[in-house]
Structures are given as C-alpha cells and as structure tokens.
Write a protein that binds this DNA or RNA. Structure first.
Lengths: 200, 200
DNA sequence: CTGTCAAAACTGAACGTTACGTTTCGCTAG
DNA sequence: CTAGCGAAACGTAACGTTCAGTTTTGACAG
C-alpha cells in the first residue's frame, strides 16, 4: 500500500541499495539509519522516504535484488531428490554468509514488529516461490518420488529447520546439516497417508 | 554481562512485569516504551534501568515468568509419542494465543538485532529445555520408540515448523497442524542411519 | 538536429517530535 | 540522619516532514 515502488524507482535506486547493503555490513542492521543511507548514497532524505516507507522496506529491496532472486529458487533437473538437496544447500550457503545473514536476520527481525513490512515480505518473497514449489512437490509425489503427505507440510519440514537455526537457536547451518535434513525428510513413510489420531 | 538481574529483583518486580505485559497486549510490542512501563508500574525510570538493560530484557523476564515456565516443558508420561504430541500441541496453543504471540514475536524480533538479548534468551530459555529433551529423545530412540537419527535433528524437525510459521510465514499453528506434524516426523524410517550422499 | 524552456525530481538544511538513557532533586521510610 | 526511591528535567539521536534552491528530463520550436 504505502509507496510500493511499482512504477519506476528513484534515479539512484542502485546507489541507495548499495549504500544500505554496505552500511549493514559495516555497522550491522540495527545501527544503520535512514540518514546514513541517504548521506552515503548522496541522496536527500525526502527522496528516500518518497520511495520507501521505512528502513525495512529499503532492505527488503536489497534482499530481493541481491539475495532472493539469484539464490533461492528450487532448481529443476528432473531428479527431485537431488533438486531438493541443492535447494536446501542453497539456504545453508546463504545463512552461512555473514553479509547475507546480517541482512536476512535484521530484516526478519524488523518484520516481527512491522506489519506492513511483514506483508510485503510475504507477498514479494514467500508467495512467488511457494506456489511453484508446492506444485513441483505435488507432482513428484504423484510420481512416487516423494513421501505422500500434505505438500505444505513437506515443504515446511525441509525449509523450517534452517530458518529455525537462523532466527531462534543460532546454530550454524552447514551443507552437511542440509543433506542430513533432506535425507531425513525423504525417509518419511506414512503408514496411512495424512494420518490423524488424537493423543488420547 | 550488562545487568543480569541475577541477584534479587527490584521491590516491585511483579508490578513492572505486569505493566509491561499489559501494555504489550494493549499497544503491541513495538509501541511499548520504557517510559510507559515505568509510569504504569508507578516506578522511576532509573529503577527500571537499574535492573534491566533494555525493553527486550524486561520482556524476556515477562516471557520467562508467564509463558515458558508453565507451558513449554516436554511432559513425561511414559508414552513418548504421546508426550511429543502434547508438547507440540502446547506450542500450537501458545502460538495461537494473541497475547503470548505478541510477546514472543516481539521478543524474538528484538533479539535479532540485540546480541545481548539473544544470548540471554538462549541461555535462559533454550538451553535449560534442550538438554533434558535431547536426553529423553535419545532414550526413546534406544528403546525403538522413535526414528533412529540425530536427536538434535529430530527435535528440530518437530519444533521448527511451528516457529517457522510464527516468525516467517505467518500461517496459523493449529492443534491439527501439530498432530499432523508429529505424525509425519514419527513416520521417518531411515534406510541407512545418517545417510549422506552428495547431490552430484 | 539542436537550442530552449517548463515541469518534475532531486539535494541539503532545518524543524518539531519522540524515546532514549542519565542526572538531579527532594521526599520518605527505616 | 541517611539510603533509596519516584518524579522531573536534561542532553542525545533518529525519526519523518517541510522548505528553498538546484539539477535533470523530455518536448517542442527553430
């Protein structure tokens, strides 16, 4: 709603995103201010606020431009198990890189207390990927390549442990961990598909 | 390091935590200020800063006192599968309650840009629970009640999807979802324990 | 193709506001 | 009489906005 830069961006969009990204690397997400971004990018503060409603919105675009687009799509080589492994390894790599980590953690943290930002994040990052992934998963399930279960849950079983480590436990997310995780999830054999039995 | 209130708390500790909790319910985490907490609790600001270094630290104690202690321990009835179901259902209930949700999301969000707070959170919440849980899980695995795999990963497979929904996707965490999740994880049958094959 | 000009967008500085975290003051309870 | 506390006041920092004055852009006349 508020200033989605759907039209064209500001003249020096790149300089601004670059400044924000650099400052985040130098000072950490929390210490970056809108003033500092404007100064570094040699841009007036009003220009900044004209196109982005908040610091978080700026960093959302930083992440979209430099992180998500190149690195987070589920590949498609025909071998689903392998694709999933590659995909989760991508997250591991991303969550291990200090700069990307700073950006993602700061952004997600901000989104926890900024509804506007959370919405934009889900619409621009989550949603676009989700739909395709679930379809792919469902297709692979139909072909017997993946455990027969709710595709949403299957996706979450793969993707949430890395996020949990990033945002909650702080444990490192290595490639070995990624592989171990994918192996475990691919080993699910539900006796009755979508079993639901109450605990008592 | 900075003012861990390890000694005894301030005289009106309860009034302060109550004020913080109430304000969070009324205004949302982000809108609560240290000033407001002090005023509401009829306490001087210096007193607040004497015992807690930041808003996040206050809310950490709120969560510890009113959320974690009562509600997050893995029960022990002898039936591990059932205990796990109860445990994850507990998280579902917690993440569904609007007040608890506000508190947890705000606190975790703040922890993403406050190292001090993140450390305290892990030491006071994560660590105490973790050790016991992993031991229980390992024992149950030895008894053949749970899939034979890294207990750390097994715990994460159960606990991270709810956290993911809370902090990343925003999807609701229902009891049905909790059950579905536990069923899926308990259905893991690793052909070769800890299989690792590179994707190419 | 080029010179001119109006409109749009930009920079930089300044402003009021808000919350921070600290300091000071005076009361009050022990 | 003194130690500790609540209340108020203070300096600092960043917010988000407003206001000039300047630069850039693109269209059109020559």
């Amino acid at each position: 709603m508020t200033a989605t830069n759907t039209g064209r961006g500001p003249r020096s969009r790149d300089a601004i995103l670059q400044a924000a990204s650099d400052l985040c690397g130098e000072l950490g997400y929390a210490a970056v201010t809108m003033e500092a971004i404007a100064t570094r990018a040699r841009v007036g503060k009003p220009t900044l606020y004209r196109w982005w409603p908040s610091k978080g919105a700026v960093f959302l675009d930083v992440v979209l431009d430099r992180i998500v687009e190149p690195a987070i799509e589920l590949p498609d080589t025909g071998d689903m198990a392998r694709d999933l492994r590659t995909w989760i390894r991508g997250f591991a790599d991303l969550f291990t890189d200090p700069h990307a980590r700073q950006l993602l953690v700061g952004l997600l943290g901000a989104a926890q207390t900024d509804t506007e930002l959370a919405t934009m994040l889900r619409e621009k990052v989550q949603r676009p990927l989700q739909a395709g992934n679930r379809q792919r998963i469902a297709a692979a399930q139909a072909a017997g390549e993946l455990p027969a279960m709710d595709p949403v849950l299957l996706e979450e079983l793969l993707i949430s442990p890395p996020w949990y480590r990033l945002l909650v436990s702080g444990e490192p997310v290595t490639r070995e961990y990624a592989d171990e995780l994918v192996d475990a999830v691919l080993s699910i054999r539900l006796e009755r598909p979508s079993a639901k039995q109450p605990p008592r």
